[in-house]
Each structure stands twice: as structure tokens, then as C-alpha cells.
Design a protein around this nucleic acid. Sequence first.
RNA 1: GGCUGGGUAGCUCAGCUGGUGAGAGCGCACGACUCAUAAUCGUGAGGUCGAGGGUUCGAUCCCCUCCCCAGCUACCA
Length: 518
Amino acid sequence: MPRFFLTTAIDYANGEPHLGHALEKVGADAIARFHRQLGYDVHFLIGMDEHGQKVAQTAEKQGMPPQQFVDEIAAIFQAMWARLGVAYDQFIRTTAPAHKEAVRRLIEQIFAADAALPESQRNFYERSYTGLYCVGCESFKQPSDIVDGKCAVHPTRTLEEVTEHNWFFRLSAYTEQLKQLFRDQPSFLEPESRRNEILQLLEQGLEDISASRSRFDWGVPFPRPLSSGEVQTTYVWFDALPNYWTARFFPGYDQKAAWPADLHVIGKDITRFHTVIWPAMLMAAGEPLPRQVWAHGFISLGGERFSKSAGVKLTLDEAIERYGVDAFRYYLLRDVPYDGDGSFSWERFEEVYNSDLANTLGNLASRSIAMIEKYRAGVVPAVAPDAELFAAHGASLADARAAVDGARQHRPNESIGAVMDIARRTNEYIQRTQPWVLAKDPANAPQLDTVLTTLAASLAHCAAWLAPVMPEKMQAMWEQLGGAGAVTAARLDQPIDVSGWKVTKGAPLFPKPEAAKE
RNA sequence: GGCUGGGUAGCUCAGCUGGUGAGAGCGCACGACUCAUAAUCGUGAGGUCGAGGGUUCGAUCCCCUCCCCAGCUACCA
């Protein structure tokens, strides 16, 4: 069984999960679920980035030890992922001993490689860094953050020139190798728009980066002291990014999380870290690179009804409660292109819910099941479905698959669109064949058998193909159709035979909530 | 400022290397049907394909200029 190891970015433990977190996780979850149903042995890794100065500060403000603080945040995130149906296989936390130990291991691996290099080429070296330090932010400021010689965030404070001596990583030495990577394997970073940005960065040339810092100690102690004897804290690059690689050092995960990963799903804002710094680190350590990085876009609360001035905000709880978890997942994945940006609005949510879920799909299920009950006592006739219709369906399914198995990148929205084409085509088929007319004359029984089987088969395929997006609702639909077992066990690369299935009309799958209407 | 990608029906967007008719979904209007969650099916509405030049027998798709929008321009992550 082919393996598919995908990851999402680990979330910074500095606040609660929001719409943006949800988009990434639900999107990656759908990709993971699609692969499971395509027959892959999937390992889906997500987690938390729990170190760093900000976390330590926030914990302090709340008057608790940092570990306790991140424990609570991690629990909140995990509860949200459970609620959203995000079925990860491993949840990694950077404060876990196994991670910290593996970080040391990775760094030592690079030091070991350095031993064979002349001093001027070593990956790790000590260097003094002088920068403008903002006491308010407790961080160094880049020229772009400075306005009129002051920190843009704390204009009343004076920036101090501070010198710090750190371990550095010779990122600049990898410019050519990275260019080569993108030449040989353009698909290393998708979508193309993001790749262009990184290519531009590589053209400009890279600067070396800090590998350790002295100003905070909430993190992994850098394995080697400076020549002065000072032990510093491993900086974020060498702590957070390696989580994908350290996952396999957790007990029981040595095979499941075997490196390299097939796909890193990340937000477009951290593309450079994952496609420049991370591969360079792996090159330095002599480790293989992940096969691909997918940088998704963002979702905003752009609509008027969510304007800040109106004071309208949105919590994930609200978004879930209105129409249910699966409808929310559907809306996110259907309405936001995974390679670009989108915006959340209740207006669009309602449109999508009513049009796609209630009218097109839900009603198709209702009418089909009702007719099978009415005309065939609930048993799907054991005949072949309409060949012509299924030829068209087959083309749609091929499209749906290409949009999620990597062939045409990772676009759940396009996959969903292709499946909805099946539902629309089937509604049209009903109108064209008019089973209620066929039912009036027993002589038409064979034709009616074909029509009813075609309806059940069409729906069964919709259920299987939308299960990665709406696992609970599609399970309900599957059961109404009389499918055995879990719909998530239905293989997408095989046709589904519905002969003899016993359908049962249940409650509408996607009821229109009168109460929610204003 | 520089770089990249965009500006196509009310909305969200497809339109590969230029060629007889500019499309989809939603929304809207009208019509049809009754199996169904007042759902569905059909038809239509007639968008200077951002603006102005140019190349070509012919451009939404090529070139130039301009206008507008978005992203990137590295150590908070």
C-alpha cells in the first residue's frame, strides 16, 4: 500500500484557534481523507509550536508556568480539531521530550557534517549580530519595521543598538543548491505564484540566519555552548521546522512518520521558511527533502457584516453551530480556493448551504430514496445503472480525483465542484426520464429499474466522494441508501455496486433551518 | 520603489500554445413538471472580455503605455 505522509504547520501556542487555523486543518484533513479512500496508507501530522519568547510572556501575564499554559492551549486546539472532525494520526508538541531530544540530534548531525569542512564553510558558526532592539517588543527590528527611527509598534520608545553573540547557520551557502532544487523539481513548491516569490528571493541571494538566541530560555537549549561557554536557546527555525522530521522519534511512530514527508501543507505567509530555510537545514544534515510544499491562501472576514466598526466577530463555535460541522467544512472547502484567498460571510454560507447542500444534493437524496421506496419497496433493483449517465459521471470523478491526489495540485474546491456536477446531472436525469410516469405502466418496469438503480448509484458515489469533506453527513446519507459499514471505507478508485441495497428514508440531511432565517 | 500575479455577465470565477457563435455556478425573470427539503427541470437576460495604442487577414488570449487590485520585498511566528 503506498504511503502518504502529510503535515500541516504547527500552530503557535499563543492564542485560540480561529477561522484561519480551521481552513488549513480542514483542508489538509480533506486531502488526508481523500488519500485514505484512494488506498494510501496515510500519516497525517499536526501539532503545536510551544516555545519562544511570546509564549513565555503570555504565560507570565496569565500568571502561570509556560508548560502549564501551553498544556491548556494544546488541549483547546485538540478539542477544536476533534469538533471539526480533523482526523490527524499524530499530534506533535515541541515541548515534548522526544521532540527536544530529536532537535538536538538534528543539530548535532549538522555539526558532525561540519567537522569535515574547513572552518570558513561550516554550517554553524559564531557571530555577533548588531541590531536595533525595541524594548517594547522585546525583539530586534528590521528596517521595514522602523518608522522615523522608532519602532512602528512602540513609537514612543527609543530603539537601542544591541549586540548579541549567537550561533548562526550559513544559509547563504545554499543559494545555488536551492536554485537547483527549483530547477530540477519545480513542483517542490505549489502553487506557482508562491514559487515565483521564492525564486525572486533566491535571485536576491540569501543571508545567514540565527540558530540560537540569548534573550529567552523557553525552548530547547542549543546543544553546544558558544566559545565563551554560554549556552543559548535554539532559535525558532531549528526548533519548530524540524517537527516534521522529529515526529518519527516519538515512541511508536518510527515507521508511521518515516521521513521524508510527502506533503507539507502550510499558509502562504510561512512559505519561505518551508522552502528555503527548511530544505537548507535538511541539506546540511544530509537528510532527504520533503516531496512537496503546498502553500494555501487565507480566509478573511471581509464582508460588511463582519466589519470591525460594526463590532461583529466570528468564533469557530458560531460558525459550526449555525449549520453544523459538516456544512461548515463544506463551505470552507467549497467556497475558498485552496490556492488563494477567500472571505467568510454568512450570506455566502447561506447561499452555498441552500443551493448546494439542501437543494441540489439533499433534495436529490430525498426524492431518489422516496421513489425507490414507493416504486420498489425500498430495494434497489439489481440491474446496471445507465451507461451513458455513468460515462459522464466517470469523467466528473476523474476530475474530482485529479484535484485532490496531487495530479492537479491540491484543490478540494475543484474536487467538490466536480462531484456536485454529478448531483446536478442526476437531477436533470430524473427530469428527463420521469420515473413517476414510468411507474404508471408495468410495461415500463425494466426502464424504471434502470432509472432507480442509477439514482442510488449516483448518490452512493456522491456520498463516497464527499465523505472526505463531510464525514458525518455522508455517513448518514450512505446509511439511508443502505450502504454497509463506513462510507469512509468506500474506495474511490472502484465503482460502487448498489444492487439490492435497502434504502430508508430518514430525516432530511440538510434541512433548511427556519429559525436561522432572519 | 522593485518583483510577481491579476482586472471577463449582478456575484464568484473558467477560458491551453490567437481564428466561424465569449462560457459555468449562484442570483434574477418567465415557463414546465410533481418523485422530492415551495425542492427540481427548461428558457432568457444580451457582459465595449480595465483604458488607449500597435502587430496580424483576424486578438479576451501577442507587444507597448496607462489606470486599478492583490501578494512578496526574510529572524513575532
